[in-house]
Computed example of a mutant assay.
Amino acid sequence: MSETIGAAALARLLLYVGALIAIGRGTVTFLDPEWAADGRAVHDASAPRWVARVGSMLLVLAPALLLYLQLGALEMTTADLPALLGETAWGRGWTQLTMASVIASVALLLGTGRTSSLLLIMSALGVAVAMGGLGHAAADAQWPLGARLLDAMHVAAMGAWIGGLLSTVLITRVPAFEARDVAWRQFSRTATVMAPVTVLTGIGSSARLLLGTPFGAIAASEYGRLLLLKTVLVLAVLLIGARQRARIQREQHPASRAVRL
């Protein structure tokens, strides 16, 4: 049982990383798809393209692994697939997730342009929305739509913030790229909006689950301890981000060590 839970957690992690890469790349390329170095689109340089391929692979692998694990958990075979996918809420949610993931996977491999970037953003947002159908939000009978909306906004904002940071780091390290200052200022503006959205939607999702629960009970639960740890980590990330934003406003680049953290 513990191995199955660990594998499911790994599958979700792969899905989140793939979505983060897709949303981050889509956001940065859409805002300025024509940045170039030595006459070539900087987004299509070796490192950004390699990471896009990794994200594309993860977006296909993660849903396949989730399906495999679900079949095993329910002691089903491939012959039971039509019933699982067509007659259960989990199956319908998985189908929506897989369709969005496959489109985002293909969009990650397309050449850089405003149209392909828009397709990537839309499909990646579809992945974010579909994720809610397989998580805590799917089990919320009181606020099903609101819960899924919070989850989707949380994933989308995190993708634009942290995924956008990854994409910006990759392009600003491309040799002969001369618009590094512009790229960092653009990311800083995006992060200034998306970081608070990430925090507020996270607070909303947690409040939805824990509202009315005594603090002692929260602190004693595994979920509560994980939430407290996440809170500390997020505060640390926000502090790092605020300091680097100040550097960017002084027309300096972020400190490499802070970016790695």
Results as ranks from 00 to 15, higher is better:
W90N: 03
Y223W: 12
M153N: 07
G26L: 11
L20T: 07
G164D: 02
A207V: 10
A141L: 15
H154D: 04
I23W: 05
T77P: 04
Q96L: 14
L261A: 15
L227E: 00
V42M: 05
A207H: 12
R12A: 06
L118Y: 01
G135R: 05
L166H: 10
F30D: 09
P214V: 14
S123E: 13
A128F: 06
G132F: 05
L65A: 13
A236S: 10
V193Q: 13
G216H: 10
K230C: 10
Q249S: 11
M99T: 05
A73E: 00
V232F: 12
G163E: 09
A19W: 15
E3H: 09
I5A: 09
G91Q: 09
A37E: 09
R49N: 01
A195D: 11
P82W: 13
L74V: 02
A128M: 11
I103L: 15
P144S: 06
T112Q: 01
L74M: 09
L58A: 07
G224F: 14
A139R: 12
L211C: 10
L14E: 02
L226I: 13
A258V: 07
Q249W: 00
E3L: 11
Y223L: 14
R173I: 04
T88S: 08
L58V: 12
M158Q: 03
W161R: 06
G164M: 03
G163A: 06
M131P: 03
R243A: 15
S256A: 12
E87R: 04
Q142W: 00
Q244M: 13
L71W: 03
V234R: 07
M122Q: 07
R260P: 00
F30N: 13
G55I: 12
G126K: 00
L150G: 01
A107S: 15
A183V: 04
L20H: 04
L109A: 14
T112C: 14
E87P: 01
R114M: 14
T201I: 13
M194L: 11
R250Q: 03
H136D: 04
I121T: 01
L97I: 07
P196Q: 12
L226P: 04
R49M: 11
